[in-house]
Design a protein around this nucleic acid. Structure first.
Lengths: 196, 196
DNA sequence: TTTTAACGATGAACCAGGTTAGGAAAAACG
DNA sequence: CGTTTTTCCTAACCTGGTTCATCGTTAAAA
C-alpha cells in the first residue's frame, strides 16, 4: 500500500473524483520523511509547501516580542499544516512548523498547486472546500477564546481532540489554549479555586 | 450606475473575468435594502445568504451562556458578511447579524451559489480565494488575541480599520477585541496603569 | 549507566482586566 | 419638541490567570 492511500481517502470524503483524477492529483505531491524536532517552516523563509500528514505529528507556533511561544495549530495523521498566510501569498513566514515525532508528509509546492488548480474544476473545488473548512474551524476557535474560561477551553479541547491532547507536550497545549503551563497544570490537577 | 458596480470592481481585483462572465455572475445576486437594527441572520435559522455590503454597516455576534454578547465580525462597504459556518453547511446559525445603519446588500443564496460554482471554473476560483482570505484573516486575529494585550489590540485595530472604529458603537468594538466596554473606556482615556 | 536537559507540579505574591454601580450625555422616537 | 432609550464614562473593588522561584520526574544523549 502506498503512502498516498490516506490522502486518497481524505479527498474522496470531500469531493467526488474518479480513479484517474485521483491518480493525476497525487502525482503532484512528493513523499517526505521528517525527523522529530526538524523544522519544515521557519520565519523569514517562504512556506514552499502545503503538507499532508501521513504519519507523525507537527506543531505550528509564533514567538512574540517577549520571546513567548504561542501555538497556532497542531497536525496529526490526516491533517494539513503550513504557514497558511505565507503559503497562499508566497511571502516570508512568521511561524515555525516543527515535527513532534518522526513523521511522513505529502508535500505540494505552491507552483504544483497552481498547475493542479488550473488543470481542472474539481481540483479547484477541493481547495475551495479546504479553505472553507479552515475558515470555519478558525472561527470556532475565535468564538471559544472570546466566550470560554481557561478551564472550559481545556475540557472542550480534550473532548474534541483527545488524540491530539495525548500526543502533544503540555506546554504546547497550554500555549495553544492561551494560558500558561502553570495554570494548565493546576486545572489538570483540580487545583483551581471553584465557585461554591 | 447600478448597485452592482462595487461588486464588479471587488471581483475584478481578485480574479480576471470578462464583462460577460461578470454579467452572468451578478445575475445570481439580489439587491436588498435593510433598515437599521434589522436582523438578517438569527440563531436557529439557517443562514440563507452570503451578503455583500454596498452601503451601510453590519455586526455579527454571539451570545454566551452568561448572556454576554461577543462580536465576531463587522462589515462595512465592500465587505462580505454571514454566519459563515451556518451558510456553508446549511445548518442552524449561532450568530445574530444586525444592521448598524440603513444599508444596501447584494444577496447570494446558497442554491444560487452552488449553481454559480458549477457554471464555471472561474466562479469556483473566486469563492476559493474568498475562503482563503477569510481563513488568513481569522488566523491573524487568533495570533493577535494570543500575543497582544488589550491595549495593543485596540491600537492595532485603530490603525488597520480606522473607518470601522469610527462607525461602530464602543461596546461592539470592545466585545470584538475581547474586553469590557469599561476597560476600553479606560484605555481610550489613558487611565490604564503603565509600567514605569 | 550516568549525566543532562526537558517537562510537569506547586505555592505565594502580584497584576491585567473584570464587576458592580452610578450618573451624564447623546440618539432615537413619538 | 420633550421623553425614553442607548451609549459612554468614572471609580472602587474584585478575581482569573500570571510570574517567579523551587523541586521532583522523565526522557534523551553520551
Amino acid at each position: 500500500m502506498s503512502e498516498f492511500e490516506p490522502l486518497i481517502k481524505h479527498i474522496r470524503k470531500r469531493v467526488d473524483m474518479t480513479d484517474d483524477e485521483l491518480a493525476e492529483l497525487t502525482s503532484y505531491f512528493n513523499v517526505k520523511k521528517i525527523k522529530k524536532k526538524q523544522f519544515i517552516i521557519q520565519p523569514d523563509f517562504v512556506a514552499k509547501h502545503r503538507n499532508y500528514v501521513v504519519e507523525g505529528a507537527f506543531r505550528a507556533y509564533v514567538i512574540d516580542g517577549k520571546g513567548e511561544e504561542h501555538t497556532i495549530q497542531f497536525a496529526i495523521e490526516d491533517w494539513w499544516i503550513s504557514d497558511y498566510n505565507s503559503f497562499i501569498h508566497q511571502q516570508p513566514a512568521t511561524m515555525f512548523v516543527v515535527a513532534l515525532d518522526n513523521s511522513i508528509v505529502l508535500q505540494l509546492t505552491y507552483e504544483q498547486e497552481q498547475k493542479l488548480k488550473a488543470a481542472g474544476h474539481k481540483y479547484e473545488t477541493f481547495f475551495r472546500i479546504m479553505a472553507e473548512r479552515s475558515a470555519a474551524y478558525q472561527q470556532r476557535r475565535i468564538i471559544s477564546n472570546l466566550t470560554q474560561s481557561a478551564e472550559e477551553r481545556y475540557t472542550d479541547f480534550l473532548e474534541k481532540y483527545p488524540l491530539v491532547a495525548q500526543r502533544v507536550p503540555q506546554y504546547a497545549l497550554a500555549s495553544y489554549l492561551g494560558m500558561t503551563t502553570e495554570f494548565l497544570s493546576k486545572i489538570r490537577n483540580n487545583k483551581v479555586r471553584r465557585k461554591s
